[in-house]
């Protein structure tokens, strides 16, 4: 652990919103109603506002914490939240708990404590351009295979790759390429049926799920988002359709 870096990360995250929301949370627990963790397993640790505790404690201690504390922080920030933001809908103050959870995750990232599964997905995303480590060749092959299948049903169907000047750049969740190509089939069918002027990209950036954002790793998040933007700009599209 490097307390200097931790304190630096905390200072970097302590902006207007963090201060605002950490200070006005009334700890009323109304957010519990919106949380699927709490609804399926109503433990106190599953109340969204509970996820603010490690951050509040860290601010109170001015960053002077130990390894066990950080482990609790990691378990809370990564283990009890999918950052879906439903809790914000139920909060009378409209506090973005997901924003605060992401700030908390950034503190874990600053200590190299990103959970293993996320860390390897993130390494994949940075290296291969998608978090499942699909190679460009595999990606193109999967698209061509599904297009072929689709053409049996819809002979005029197309799936242009790197078509300059198309209206829309379609991006994917890599899960739909690797595990559920049937989903890819359905997307292509839908866009063709709708007469959408779309293109795919062969560049890194075809995966628009930003695992860096989810992990709380800001530089990685910026890199991954930048690739999607660059892919869109290079092709001159007007709209980028992001994945679920």
């Amino acid at each position: 652990m490097d307390l200097g870096i931790l304190k630096q990360a905390l200072a970097g995250k302590s902006g207007a919103r963090l201060k605002l929301w950490m200070e006005i949370c009334a700890r009323c627990g109304l957010c519990a109603q919106g949380c699927h963790f709490f609804q399926s397993d109503p433990r106190p640790e599953h109340v969204p506002a509970y996820r603010l505790k490690p951050l509040a404690e860290l601010i109170r201690k001015k960053g002077d914490v130990d390894e066990a504390f950080m482990q609790w922080l990691v378990d809370t920030a990564y283990g009890t939240c999918t950052m879906c933001q439903r809790c914000t809908m139920f909060c009378p103050h409209g506090i973005s708990i997901a924003f605060l959870v992401r700030a908390t995750r950034a503190l874990a990232v600053s200590q190299g404590m990103t959970p293993q599964g996320l860390a390897s997905g993130l390494a994949n995303a940075l290296e291969f351009g998608n978090n499942l480590g699909i190679t460009e060749e595999e990606y193109i092959e999967t698209v061509e295979w599904q297009l072929e299948e689709l053409q049996a049903e819809m002979p005029d169907a197309v799936a242009p790759i790197d078509k300059k000047g198309a209206e829309v750049l379609v991006t994917f969740h890599p899960r739909d390429i690797k595990f559920y190509p049937q989903n890819l089939y359905c997307y292509l069918k839908l866009y063709n049926a709708a007469g959408l002027d779309f293109t795919l990209t062969s560049a890194k950036g075809w995966d628009s799920t930003n695992i860096g954002l989810f992990a709380g790793d800001d530089p990685a998040a910026a890199e991954l988002a930048g690739r999607v933007v660059a892919a869109g700009e290079n092709l001159g599209v007007r709209t980028i359709l992001t994945a679920e």
Partner: peptide, 20 residues
């Protein structure tokens, strides 16, 4: 204290309302 929500309620809701 958190009683500052007397005024910050409006700020917080404005921020979230704008974001959403």
């Amino acid at each position: 204290t958190k009683l500052s929500h007397a005024v910050l309620f409006f700020v917080s809701r404005a921020v979230t309302g704008s974001d959403f």
